[in-house]
Design a protein around this nucleic acid. Structure first.
Lengths: 330, 330
DNA sequence: CTGAAAGCGCTTACAG
DNA sequence: CTGAAAGCGCTTACAG
């Protein structure tokens, strides 16, 4: 690969000038600029990102820490962020946390040395207290830290979140308005910052209607199996319910399968609302009523925050409103 | 962050010695080694990967180029590769090609300068001829290039592939043995190296049974919508078929929805076989009969090839056998 | 077995 | 407006 050396020689200028042209900040005489540009093109020169990073103390790569890529909406966020970043000439380093706080810790511990441009924390897991100082150290190293999905502004981290609680309340109210009272909730609660908010939104709606019953709260993971197993278990135990608010579309799909297996019709016998609006939902039968996510919008906010950093140490909170996508399951 | 300088000062040795201890190749007196280790721990020293990369001419990051992350099995491969790489102390740079050969080209053009440890090409798209020289240049720069899913050994690239053709043949034979003759094929064919192989496997089985009919071949993408739309269209045109071999599970799910909407029962009226064995399949109703993928195994092969590079310029071909996962849809 | 020195490819004060 | 020089943090021949 051509280096700045070779370009300089070819253009008959110094390294410094090539670098200036390349970076386009300082003024360089038009004629010389042309010569350098020509040399760059002829040689197919591309600056070495490691050398740039070493010198500038920051690279052009952004790390995305996802809680569990198996959740479709996080994955959609990942794809959208990667593409948006690429448009800005940045690379995406992927780190799948897999809900292990030890792994998150390891990654954050070695992050300061990676000269990352930014770190986007996209996990719904509640962060253990010991990561706060790590995050501080990372920011001190000039790396932009962002959170998406979880509000981390109390740690001074700009965050892009959804109105989880309100959205869940609205969704449950919709079910309530349809006359349901025995509405079950399936999703993560303990250990999940986001899950806790959703649950609170559910509880608020149920409480307001005087319909809350702890027996209808099933604290599970966000996977297909969780929805399936929770329903099977409830049915086996003879717990009565006429509707389900799921914490993810995967849960809803699993629940739908279990209901089908037991001859329970959706939505006639049990109404079902998912959460996240993954592509699959509209191909389930009945098509899944769910709560929207709008991953492209979240990705746009994230890259926006990454590119126009605000200098002042403010940590803005951006909230995306989720809405109910009505299809056939409720 | 502590540098090798500071560690050296603290341990009372030279930079070189610290580096030697850190890399553990050369012999260092036991007593000195201890001192250095102690200093490293006290200072929480971690080598700067950019400096290492610049000096050694290669980094510790591996780029994964995926054709379309929206395909669940590629995504599963991604997650598995990331985790396996992490165990080896390597990072994963994600590049979602999105089926655009121009984007692939851009990425490969700037790759040589990134000092990547390796590039894993996981796209089923047929590669345009102009990428061959780019790949050569990348290899010349000391970067290991690997292909997964598509056989690129003819370009001197070690490849991990599936027995796509044979697997499809076996799957279609299964349908044939159940008495089906009007078996449709939905999936990518043109432009997809892998798709072409699958189609050939389908055609071989159909030809052998004297049942091949071009009217039953529907060349579509791998998405949900493709399966849905192909079925709707075929039904509208009055094309008769009693079974479908899908090129992906997403296609199968979309097809299942369309069949359901038209009151066509699966498997009674139309048998359906997917491809890829994504988690969703077992939660569809009827549960989807499909062809396995075994992404964790593929990921293991990939990281194996990445870590134990063979020096000799051989380009081995590793084939993973897909098997039929029988559930209820066929 | 250990250290001094060169150099990976860049960028950026510092002079001029 | 342009160049010579220092230095980002490492590793690796080269001496000793």
């Amino acid at each position: 690969m051509a280096t700045v050396q070779e370009v300089a020689r070819r253009a008959g200028v110094s390294l410094a000038t090539v670098s200036r042209v390349q970076n386009g900040n300082t003024t360089v005489a038009a004629e010389i600029r042309e010569r350098v540009h020509a040399a760059i093109i002829e040689l197919g020169y591309r600056p070495n990102p490691m050398a740039q990073g070493l010198r500038k103390g920051r690279s052009n790569t952004v790390a995305l820490v996802v809680g569990d890529l198996a959740q479709r909406h996080l994955f959609e966020l990942t794809v959208n962020v990667q593409v948006a970043l690429e448009d800005e000439g940045m690379d995406l380093l992927l780190f799948n946390q897999g809900h292990s706080s030890a792994r998150l810790n390891d990654f954050l511990a070695r992050a300061p040395t990676m000269a990352l441009r930014g770190i986007v924390v996209a996990t719904s897991d509640a962060l253990p207290a010991r990561v706060a100082p790590l995050l501080e150290r990372i920011k001190a190293a000039g790396c932009t830290v962002l959170a998406v999905g979880q509000n981390l502004t109390h740690l001074g981290i700009p965050s892009v979140v959804y109105d989880e609680g309100e959205a869940t309340t609205r969704s449950v109210q919709y079910l309530l308005e349809k006359g349901h009272r025995r509405i079950a909730y399936i999703g993560r609660i303990k250990g999940s910052a986001v899950g806790t908010e959703r649950f609170k939104g559910y509880k608020a709606a149920m409480d307001a209607a005087g319909a809350f019953d702890p027996a209808l709260v099933w604290d599970r993971t966000y996977r297909y199996a969780a929805g399936h197993d929770a329903v099977v278990q409830a049915l086996d135990q003879g717990i009565a319910f006429t509707a389900i608010q799921a914490g993810s579309d995967e849960i809803a799909a699993g629940a739908m399968a279990a209901l089908h297996d037991r001859g329970v019709h959706v939505p006639a016998d049990v109404a079902l609302v998912g959460f996240g609006d993954i592509e699959l939902g509209s191909y389930l039968r009945p098509a899944l009523t769910t709560v929207s996510s709008n991953a492209p919008l979240a990705a746009r906010y994230v890259t926006g925050l990454l590119t126009h950093e605000q200098g002042d140490g403010s940590a803005p909170l951006t909230t995306i409103t989720r809405s109910l996508v009505k299809r056939d399951s409720a």
